[in-house]
Amino acid sequence: MIAVIDYDTGNLRSVANALGRLGAEYTITSSPAEIRSADRVLLPGVGEASSAMAKLRERGLIEVIRSLTQPVLGICIGVQLLCRHSEENDTECLGIFDNEVRKFDLPGLKVPHMGWNSLTHLRTPLFDGIEEGAYVYYVHSFAPTLNDDTIAITEYGYPFSAAIAKDNFFGTQFHPEKSASVGERLLQNFLKL
């Protein structure tokens, strides 16, 4: 069973639909017990960092998420919440990944970064069967910086972490649930980890 963490943010439905298309069994839940006992945990979402952290805190999920030992995948705001800190309203995040989340800020750069952009420097089994240069779908104004845990890079004005992995935690800044066959392959890979 896959637990999709429900913390009252948009986009849960999209992720659930994508899991449904893969034939995976999932539950959308904010129950600590269900989340702890799941085989896989997904932290999806769209929205603003400080209010997303507040919602996790209200539901008593901060320590629950930090203590998970099964494979966990954060998507979009989900990966940002797994990072150390976000510039978005100066938010302390979960600190699983040591990355800082920064706003795109370059003259002439259109923000949000919206649309299909390519992946390079792919590492880990999360990207099995996915080629260098593959395109994935993005919608975001903030992105995690690069560090040793970066497992995929995208450039928009400058390079940022398209995906991060540390121990059992994974995260993608792009939306695999909206990234056609490449995204489906990534989700399948995650389910097989």
């Binding site: 439905r13 999209s14 909206k178």
Partner: peptide, 8 residues
């Protein structure tokens, strides 16, 4: 559409 389409 949301259930069946894998692009935005």
């Amino acid at each position: 559409i949301a259930e069946n389409i894998n692009i935005p």
